[in-house]
Nucleic acid binder design. Structure first.
Length: 197
DNA sequence: GGAGCGATGTCCT
DNA sequence: GGACATCGCTCCG
C-alpha cells in the first residue's frame, strides 16, 4: 500500500517541495476509477518575493489559498481556456506554491484520453505533458478542485509515495513567464520523456 | 521539428 | 484595457 503524503511534506519553501514532489504519484478519483500519474516536472513560485508569482502583490480573493495552510490545491484559469494545478507550501499565513507541469501517466490512460478529447490509442506523451494538459486529463478545474486538501484521500485528489526515487534531477529556468524568467526554479526528472517541451 | 499565431475568460493595474 | 505560470494548428524548411 502506498503512503499518502502528509501535510508536513508541504511545510517547507517551494523550491524544496518542488524537488521533493518529483517521482511522487498524483492520484485522482474519477467516477470510481483511479487516474494516476507520476510527477516528473514542477516549478516553484516563491510567495511575495517572486515577481513571477501570483502572490507577489499580496493576498487577493483568487490567490488566498496560497497564503493558507500547506497541502491545499490552488487551481487557476489561464489564457481563456486552460487550468493549472498547484499545491500550497509554507506554514499558514505564508505564501508559496508549486506548479505541476507534467506527469508520466500510469493508470487510467483511456479515461485521460477521453477527457482530453483524444483517441484511446493516442501517444501517451500528449496526455499529461504540460500544466494545462494534465488538468484536462484528470478533469481538474477551479470549480471542482480549488481549495481541496490534497493530504486527504477523500478529497478525490491526493499524492502518494510508492518509494520511487529519481536518479537525477534537472534544474532549469521556468517556462512561459516574463518576470524573473532567469531564476532556476523549474525541476524535472532528468531524461524522463514525459517532461514538457 | 520549430517559429508564428489565434483562441478565449479572468484578474488586477 | 492589458497581461496572462498554455495549447494546438498552420506554414515552412
Amino acid at each position: 500500500m502506498n503512503k499518502t503524503v502528509p501535510r508536513a511534506f508541504y511545510l517547507d519553501p517551494p523550491e524544496v517541495v518542488a524537488r521533493r514532489l518529483l517521482g511522487k504519484l498524483l492520484v485522482r478519483r474519477y467516477e470510481g476509477q483511479r487516474l494516476v500519474g507520476r510527477i516528473v516536472e514542477t516549478e516553484a513560485y516563491c510567495g511575495v518575493n517572486d515577481p513571477a508569482a501570483h502572490t507577489f502583490a499580496g493576498i487577493t480573493e483568487r490567490n488566498a489559498v496560497l497564503f493558507g495552510p500547506p497541502g491545499v490545491a490552488y487551481v487557476y484559469f489561464i489564457y481563456g481556456m486552460h487550468y493549472c494545478l498547484n499545491f500550497s507550501c509554507e506554514p499558514d499565513g505564508q505564501a508559496g506554491g508549486v506548479l505541476l507541469r507534467a506527469l508520466e501517466p500510469l493508470e487510467g490512460l483511456a479515461t485521460m484520453a477521453k477527457l482530453r478529447g483524444l483517441a484511446a490509442d493516442t501517444n501517451p506523451r500528449l496526455l499529461t505533458s504540460g500544466p494545462g494538459r494534465l488538468c484536462e486529463a484528470l478533469g481538474v478545474t477551479r470549480r471542482t478542485h480549488n481549495g481541496l486538501d490534497v493530504t486527504n484521500r477523500r478529497s478525490g485528489l491526493h499524492v502518494e509515495d510508492d518509494g520511487f526515487a529519481p536518479e537525477r534531477i534537472a534544474t532549469t529556468a521556468r517556462v512561459g513567464i516574463r518576470k524573473a524568467a532567469e531564476r532556476p526554479l523549474r525541476f524535472s526528472i532528468a531524461g524522463n520523456r514525459f517532461v514538457s517541451r
